[in-house]
Every structure is written in C-alpha cells, then in structure tokens.
Design a protein around this nucleic acid. Structure first.
Lengths: 126, 126
DNA sequence: ACTAATATACGAGTAGTTTCGTAAAGAGCG
DNA sequence: CGCTCTTTACGAAACTACTCGTATATTAGT
C-alpha cells in the first residue's frame, strides 16, 4: 500500500492546472495557447512541464491519439483546500478566521457571495 | 526614486519572518532556537538565510552589538494581503468570496471570530 | 511516396533556494 | 596572554524549477 502523498504544484504547474480544470480535457497545444495569452513561453516548455506533472501524478495522460490529452488528477477543491490550509497555518497562526477577515477586508466580494457566506456562518453557529 | 518593488519571501524565509514578527526583535540564535523546535536545521543555515533576507530587504539588521539583531522590514499584514491576493487570483478565479467559503467550510473558526466576520459582513453590505 | 506541419522525447543549461563546512573575528575568563 | 565559546562571513554543493534547442516520430495533403 503506497501512501497517496500530496504533491504540491509549483507556480507554473498551477497555471497549467487551472487551464486543465477549466477545459476538463486539454492537449499541450490547448494549454500552451491559453498560457500564451498572458505570458511568453515556448511550446516545448509547456510540454515539458506537463510531462513532469504527469510523472508527479498531478495530471493523467491519454496517449491513444497522436496529440496526448491530459486531465487533472487532483481536484481543484482539494488543491484549494490544501494550499489554504498551508496558508492558514503558515501565515495566519492557524486561525482561519484571521484569514477570512483579511480577505474580506482587503478584497471586494460580490453581493451574492456575501449572502452565501452569511448563510454558511449561520449554519456554523448552531 | 527607486521603486519599492515587492519581494516575495520564499517558504523558508516566511518561517523566519514569522519568528521575527512574533518577537519583534531577534538575533540569529533566537530565530534558530525557535525553528529548531519544529525542524532540524543547522545554525549557519539560518544565519545565511537571514543574511540573504537582509540583502533582499525583507529584514533590517542592527550590527551595533556582536550578535546582530534583526527586525522585519515588511509587515505581517502587507505580506498576508499580498499572498492572499495572489491566491485569490491564482486559485480562486479572482473571487475572494470563493476563497472565504472554502476556508470557512473546511477549517473551523472560533465563535468570536465568526461573530467578527458577521459584523464585518454587515458593514460591507450597506 | 515525399513533403510540410506538428507532435513527443530528451538532454542540458540557467537561475534560485537551501544546505552546511570551514574560517575568521570578537568577548569573556582563567 | 591563551583558551574557549559564540558570532558573522564566505564559498560551494545539492536540489528544484524553469527554460528551450534539437532529435525523432507521426499524420495529412498532394
């Protein structure tokens, strides 16, 4: 039984994961073209990174067609949860409340989200 | 006028910053002993990192006594805000509300903090 | 079948982070 | 002074992240 050890995506890997999460299924070209919109990067660089991500188990690869197709092997939610936890422990003294207060104080949430948060808080309280 | 360009602390640098933030003023030995409680690291490693942090402008150094004393050159709040912003943009599609919902859903906040958050939300709403 | 286009594989260079050994300087004490 | 303890300085190794050039393979079009 091998432990399903958590692999922390690097900065660049996270950018790639975001594209794959959005598209669901993506070739290297798909990802590369998306990334090219906002940054200057070579095709083979993206390819290499995705190959590494495959080795690390961050993505799965379907090699059946010539252009390999990738899907995420880690969920967006799990990744968010993990990195959030790291941040809470590392930067907010283990207090999620402090993080939330900072976030809400510095960044503007939408009306509907605010309502959602209030609802969640009400549920948490009882 | 030189631009006060933001320097992103590395993982290790953040651990050191945390100690300095807590203590306000700290020698290498102070920091090292604190870090030693939770991780196995050599004294000179900590020293070197703190020297680098000084060069980067993350900390200030008082060399007047034999053991140099360090203070933080970046505030905890500014750093929290910056990294939080990066996380919101990078991992939560630019939506602070999503981050907050994830945080509150997965990590338990204290009663008093929940109350604080509710109060803040009420203020935001009007 | 040949060519052009486009795909993956691979190796290696560069830069940044983290590590620590060793040296040298300063302070206190017999 | 001479010894020891503690400090900073420095250099380099080990490791990781990122980058891309070049080679090779596969597909489609003519």
């Amino acid at each position: 039984m091998s432990a399903p050890k958590y692999v922390k995506p690097t900065e660049s890997e996270l950018e790639i994961l975001r594209v794959i999460w959005d598209k669901g299924l993506a070739s290297v070209r798909d990802v590369h073209e998306e990334l090219s919109k906002t940054k200057d990067v070579g095709y083979t660089t993206t390819l290499k990174l995705m190959q590494i991500m495959n080795e690390k188990g961050l993505v799965k690869r379907d090699k059946s067609s010539r252009a390999h197709y990738y899907t995420a092997a880690v969920s967006r939610e799990k990744t968010q949860k993990h990195l959030l936890g790291k941040m809470i422990d590392g930067l907010f003294g283990g207090s999620p409340g402090q993080l939330v207060l900072q976030a809400l104080g510095n960044y503007k949430a939408s009306e509907t989200e605010i309502a959602e948060i209030q609802q969640l808080l009400d549920n948490l309280k009882k």
